[in-house]
Design a protein around this nucleic acid. Structure first.
Length: 287
DNA sequence: ATCCTATCCTGTAGGC
DNA sequence: TGCCTACAGGATAGGA
C-alpha cells in the first residue's frame, strides 16, 4: 500500500508530533510480521528520546538518542498512528504501542503483517541487510536521465518491473509506476535497457514530479493507507490511469487497459503509451 | 548474474 | 443473508 509519498507523509507528521519526545513505556504484540518483532523492543526503547526521523525509499527510520534506530516498513497494510491523548482504544492488529512522556501514544498497526519493525544500532544502519540493498531514493537524491540510462543499461526487464525494483530505485510502488509511465508516454512492457537517453530524461523528471505532487497531496488512499492522524491521502483523486480499467484516457479518450506484469496490475493507455519493442515473450497479450 | 514465481497474511468487493 | 473467489499499495527466497 504505502509507497514513497505515503511514507514521506507519515515521516513529516511524525517529525511534527513526536520529535524530541521520550518513550515512557512500550508494548508489543509478539506476533510475527515480515520478521519477528524483537522481544527486547520495549526494554530498549524505554527512556529514549526521538532525535530524528529519516526515510529511505519505503523504509522509515526513527532515530533515538544513545545510538538506536527503530527501522520500520509499512508493507501493504501497515500504519503508524498518533493519539495525543494516549487513550485506550480498541483496535485490531496493533503490534507496537509506545506511550510517550507527557501524554500521547504512537501505535503501529498492520493487519496483513507484511510490515517490519527492527531495532538497529544507528552506527550500523549502513550495514543493515534490508537497507543495504536499496538503490537511490529519487526524492532525496533526484537522478538525471543519464544516471537512470546507465543503471538500466543491458536490462531486459520490463520498464514497469524495473521501476518497482527497489535495488534500482527505492520508493516507487505499483501505483506510481503506472502513473509515471503514463506521464512519460512509455509503454510499460518495453525493456528497460532499450529506452533511449531522451526517454530516460522524461522518466526521470516525471518520477520526481509525480512523487512530489503525491507528497503534497499526502499520498494516495486506495483503501487501507492512512496518515499519522488516521486520515486518507488526497492524491487518489489525481491518479490518471491506476485502477481505471476501461475508463477513457484523460488525455486521448481511449479505454485504459489493465495487464498483469509479474502478477501485479499495470494500468496504461495503449494509445498515449505507444508501441515499440516489448520485453518478455508473452508480455504483449492479455485483455 | 538476471529474471520470474510462489509465498507470507487479512480484509474486502463482487458474483451467485 | 451467506459463501466463494479474486485481488490488494510489498519484499524475498528459491528455481530456471
Amino acid at each position: 500500500m504505502p509507497e514513497l509519498p505515503e511514507v514521506e507523509t507519515v515521516r513529516r507528521m511524525l517529525e511534527s508530533s513526536v520529535l524530541g519526545r521520550t518513550v515512557r513505556s512500550a508494548r508489543i504484540s509478539g506476533l510475527k510480521l515480515r520478521s519477528r518483532v524483537p522481544a527486547e523492543l520495549p526494554a530498549r526503547l524505554r527512556g529514549r528520546t526521538i532525535e530524528s526521523l529519516g526515510r529511505h525509499g519505503k523504509y522509515l527510520l526513527i532515530g533515538f538518542d544513545r545510538g538506536l534506530t527503530l527501522l520500520s516498513h509499512l508493507g501493504m497494510s501497515g500504519r503508524w498512528l498518533y493519539f495525543p491523548d494516549a487513550g485506550d482504544r480498541s483496535l485490531d492488529h496493533v503490534h507496537a504501542r509506545l506511550v510517550l512522556v507527557g501524554g500521547g501514544a504512537l501505535w503501529f498497526q498492520d493487519p496483513r503483517r507484511f510490515g517490519l519493525l527492527r531495532i538497529v544500532e544507528t552506527a550500523k544502519l549502513a550495514r543493515d541487510a534490508s537497507l543495504r540493498r536499496l538503490g537511490p531514493d529519487p526524492v532525496t537524491t533526484p537522478l538525471a536521465g543519464e544516471a537512470l540510462h546507465e543503471i538500466a543499461h543491458g536490462s531486459r526487464q520490463a520498464i514497469k518491473t524495473f521501476l518497482l525494483d527497489q535495488r534500482r530505485l527505492a520508493g516507487i510502488g505499483n501505483i506510481y509506476a503506472s502513473e509515471i509511465l503514463f506521464r512519460s508516454g512509455v509503454d510499460p512492457r518495453r525493456m528497460a535497457g532499450r529506452l533511449s537517453r531522451a526517454e530516460w530524461d522524461r522518466v526521470a523528471s516525471d518520477t520526481r514530479q509525480v512523487l512530489e505532487e503525491a507528497i503534497r497531496g499526502m499520498g494516495t488512499t486506495f483503501s487501507a493507507y492512512r496518515t499519522l492522524w488516521g486520515e486518507p491521502g488526497s492524491y487518489g483523486e489525481r491518479l490518471l490511469v491506476y485502477d481505471r480499467p476501461g475508463e477513457p484516457c484523460l488525455r486521448c479518450g481511449s479505454p485504459i487497459r489493465r495487464i498483469l506484469q509479474g502478477q501485479r496490475s499495470t494500468f496504461f493507455c495503449p494509445v498515449c503509451q505507444g508501441r515499440r519493442t516489448r520485453s518478455g515473450p508473452r508480455a504483449g497479450r492479455k485483455a
